[in-house]
């Protein structure tokens, strides 16, 4: 099977933010909304949900290896991760719709990725009691990573300089809305929907093996310790960064001269980007926005 050719993928100028049911979005994630909203989930689907740049690709790859690494090893070298784990709401000209890719996935289960906040996730996922794996990343590192992503991805609104971007992030004026609402939305959903595994990026960096084991337990997989160890090695950041099937280097919408899709993957890199003043201001805003939640993040490990 050949690597798909997306050179015909075409973008106008960078998209503008629009308000979509109370959430900041762009047309690349709303133009196909009827099909997204009415997407028919299956009971054995696995929805991988994150705020952008919180470890989506990492977890997608882990799941793919857990389920299909042995069964269909050829996928690992012939299909980019974004084909194996469709991006549900995606709607770029020249690319298959996210919903189409998901509907035509030949696998069972179907791993599907979304950045939608919890209230915009198609109802069928909840009705079918599908499994949801949510990965959250501390706000500061998430902001840094999102900034660099917006710099290199022509399918995102123009980020401006770091100071401008950070202000927008604190105000919640980013695609898929405020980070605070996103992480809290799924945290609250977890109280009433038991089929959500809420994971932290920082825990994954600290002890990937332990988190892979947690994931197996949640998914009801009886993967051997040896196999889990092999997968853990294969999903190390530097390995994925070099892997054309996971580093998004096959997508023309991204300008990798500006920044690689997978940049550092670290916890604590925010300390190299925030000024001391920005950090103080951010902490003040964060304290206010997060005062009504019990979810806790670590900004270093």
């Amino acid at each position: 099977m050949e690597i798909p050719d997306f050179s015909s993928m075409k973008l106008d100028s960078r998209p503008e933010l629009i308000d979509f049911e109370g959430v900041s979005m762009t047309r690349y994630f709303t133009d196909n909304w009827e099909k997204v909203k009415n997407f028919q989930a299956r009971p054995d689907d696995i929805l991988i949900a994150t705020y952008p740049k919180a470890g989506t690709t990492w977890v997608s790859y882990i799941l793919d290896l857990l389920y299909f690494g042995n069964e269909s090893p050829e996928r690992q070298t012939s299909q980019p991760i974004y084909m194996r784990v469709p991006f549900l709401e995606m709607c770029f000209q020249g690319l298959p719709l996210g919903t189409e890719l998901a509907d035509t996935l030949p696998t069972s289960p179907r791993p599907i990725k979304t950045h939608l906040p919890v209230q915009l996730v198609p109802k069928s996922f909840w009705e079918q009691n599908s499994k949801v794996v949510y990965v959250a990343r501390n706000a500061k590192d998430n902001a840094v990573s999102y900034f660099h992503f917006d710099r290199m991805n022509m399918g995102q609104p123009e980020p401006g300089d770091w100071n401008t971007f950070l202000q927008k992030f604190m105000d919640g004026r980013n695609v898929f809305g405020p980070w605070y609402d996103h992480v809290n939305g799924y945290w609250k959903k977890k109280q009433t929907y038991s089929n959500i595994l809420y994971m932290f990026y920082e825990d994954m960096v600290e002890d990937t093996g332990r988190e892979v084991a947690r994931l197996c337990s949640f998914l009801g997989l009886s993967t051997s310790a040896t196999e889990r160890e092999r997968i853990t090695k294969g999903v190390q950041f530097d390995v994925m960064k070099q892997n054309k099937m996971t580093n998004y280097s096959t997508l023309p919408v991204m300008d990798f001269k500006i920044s690689p899709f997978m940049r550092k993957g670290k916890v604590g890199d925010w300390r190299n980007h925030f000024t001391v003043a920005q950090n103080e201001q951010f902490d003040e805003v964060y304290k206010q926005k997060m005062k009504n939640t019990t979810v806790k993040f670590r900004t270093e490990i």
């Binding site: 300390r271 925030f274 000024t275 001391v276 103080e280």
Partner: peptide, 12 residues
């Protein structure tokens, strides 16, 4: 004014 220039990493 240094707080507007130094990152926490640089400051440390």
């Amino acid at each position: 004014d240094w707080v507007n220039h130094f990152t926490p990493a640089q400051s440390k």
